[in-house]
Design a protein around this nucleic acid. Structure first.
Length: 131
DNA sequence: GTTCTCACA
DNA sequence: TGTGAGTA
């Protein structure tokens, strides 16, 4: 079973980029930030496996949630490789993530307020135009 | 044809 | 994060 993972087909950066829906540039950037660690060929080419496709998706989700690369890196290292959401001995990070989650809640609320304000302005503008 | 690193009118 | 340069 583990043997299977080790002999997975390896792909170059371009192929992984297409599969994951990101640019090769982004993939190199993730590596620079320690989020994604590809293998290397003798010639220096980065080599990835199917496993990396899902890793990239998780990275994108976390990044989209507003986490910086440092936090994403911490999370990645606290999850058992193939497992979806497993946390070994990283309970110490939970508190930090809870703070981050709270900040996200605050941002959502602020975004809602901004949207409401915009809605008011828009209807006021339309009322003026129709008058 | 692809990727690599480095640099930025 | 895109793009071009000069390679491997």
């Amino acid at each position: 079973m583990k043997v299977k993972a080790e002999r997975q087909r390896r792909v170059q950066i371009g192929a992984l980029a297409r599969r994951a829906g990101v640019s090769p540039r982004a993939l190199r950037y993730y590596e620079e930030k320690g989020l994604l660690v590809p293998g290397r060929t003798a010639g220096g080419y980065r080599v990835y496996t199917e496993e990396h496709v899902e890793t990239v998706r998780r990275i994108r989700i976390l990044l989209a949630a507003g986490l910086n690369s440092d936090m994403v890196s911490e999370i990645m290292s606290c999850m058992v490789d193939d497992g979806e959401f497993l946390a070994p001995g990283c309970e110490d990070l939970i508190a930090e993530f809870e703070r981050k989650r709270r900040r996200i809640d605050t941002q959502i609320a602020e975004l809602h307020d901004g949207r409401s304000a915009l809605t008011g302005i828009i209807s006021a503008g339309k009322a003026f135009a129709d008058s």
